[in-house]
Design a protein around this nucleic acid. Structure first.
Lengths: 250, 250
DNA sequence: CGGACTCTGTGGGCTAGCGCACGGGAATGG
DNA sequence: CCATTCCCGTGCGCTAGCCCACAGAGTCCG
């Protein structure tokens, strides 16, 4: 588990903190939680939780993203979920299990609100709106885990690359971010060479451009067209579950 | 959604009903829930819930199993989770979302306790032990979803076939069960021909035998040896989370 | 007893992606 | 300024598994 540098951030009460789970809470609960948080910088490669070990902190990303990594046979690995400003690392604490189901690793540089896990656990007892939000988010995560499983099985590298780039872009909140071919390959569970090939194709079509890990999305529309249905499906799931309280029951 | 025939079953208070989630409850809650259940036969192919549609019933399998199926592009499909006597179909109701995250389809013949979804929802409010169990089980499901994703990505058909057979055998509670090459192929998301090949190999080694869908496990030890680490990992997750209350907090 | 259907065996062409290895250019740091 | 490290391009042999098609054998039913 890595130490992350605290950062100071200008408070902006009008636009919110930048994490949707936090910003969606009623004012009273939100302020209570924020008092327990500090801001930290997300440094790519930093490991924030280890599988089967208790969380020491939970993280609400604002910019950038964290991957949940499943490793097999001690060697190969695969990202099963990408956590950004729409979610959090440590949501499974709402299930009462203190241990992390997977390794959590910072994928793309940014910033997050951090809270000690014990504080979150006690907050769950007197923040009903928080519990409600986390449960909804957990449902979304479950849907996406299985969506991801299918995508990894059936869709080719090109389409999955496009989907991955879109997902990182959304969470970076910028059309420019840092991500090497190797880290994308680890995300998708493929060879680095396969990414070089597929990314080169996108570059030649002027969809993206990159140099030494600095990726710029030039034409988001084309990227969506190149991606598999899974990207659109993910967006659909978010909007359906997280923004229609009528569908849900506490 | 299919109509399943009710069946009558000799009540056996000593050994329990046969579903671990139910049997693990304190007597009072258990009896209360059982009063809301009836027994139904699980008929292979029956669809018990549709993605994005509300559950009408939840199912606690006793014998046999139910698959959670993720279909993509309207054509191909993949099983992401296998539900047997260790779990239930509809556990996501504990998250307050009434809709099913995936299609639920009976995979192997058997029997289940069935309860109307609305009854479960109201039971959650005054059965704390039930909520605790379901949350733990949900955690296990999440771990396995990601384990499965990795397995489908990296392990070859032979190993996954062996894992799948072991999982079905455990839930069938018998070393003999019905499962055609085609349905195994759908489970693993591969071609039928690939299963015929891999299963033929196992048959020639006297690990299994089968004829027209009737599969018999001859040598469970060899089957475990042929399977990938994922089978052992699954068992490990179950025992770790579901049988060590000390690890957990409500 | 014959027809329809289901399940399994087989085979052959084909392609995506693996595994590995090498080289070159860009940054970084002493 | 040089050495090292990181990142990207490329190439090539290889294999697993896809896709499609057909045939035989068991089963069920009229």
């Amino acid at each position: 588990m890595q130490q992350l540098k605290p950062v100071t951030v200008p408070h902006s009460p009008a636009t919110g903190e930048g994490n949707l789970l936090i910003d969606g809470l009623p004012r009273k609960e939100r302020l209570k939680l924020l008092a327990l948080c500090d801001h930290v910088e997300l440094v790519p490669g930093a490991v924030l939780c280890q599988v089967d070990e208790p969380f020491d902190h939970v993280y609400f990303p604002v910019i950038g993203c964290i991957s949940l990594v499943r490793s097999l046979d001690g060697r190969v690995a695969l990202d099963t979920e990408l956590i950004g400003c729409e979610g959090m690392l440590g949501v499974t604490l709402v299930l009462g299990v203190p241990c992390a189901p997977q390794r959590g690793r910072v994928q793309s540089h940014g910033r997050a609100l951090r809270m000690p896990a014990t504080q979150l656990q006690s907050s769950l007892e007197d923040c009903p709106a928080l519990v409600l939000s986390l449960k909804r988010y957990l449902f979304v995560v479950m849907v996406q885990l299985s969506q991801n499983a299918g995508c990894n099985r059936f869709h080719d590298v090109g389409a999955r690359l496009a989907r991955g780039l879109l997902m990182v872009q959304d969470r970076a909140r910028s059309n420019r971010f840092h991500l090497t071919h190797q880290s994308i390959a680890d995300m998708l569970g493929v060879q680095r060479g396969a990414i070089t090939l597929a990314a080169g194709l996108l570059q030649r079509k002027n969809v993206i451009s990159y140099s030494r890990g600095e990726i710029t999305i030039l034409d988001r529309g084309k990227l969506v067209a190149a991606s598999c249905e899974c990207y659109a499906a993910r967006i659909g799931t978010y909007t359906q579950i997280l923004s229609q309280p009528g569908l849900l029951r506490g």
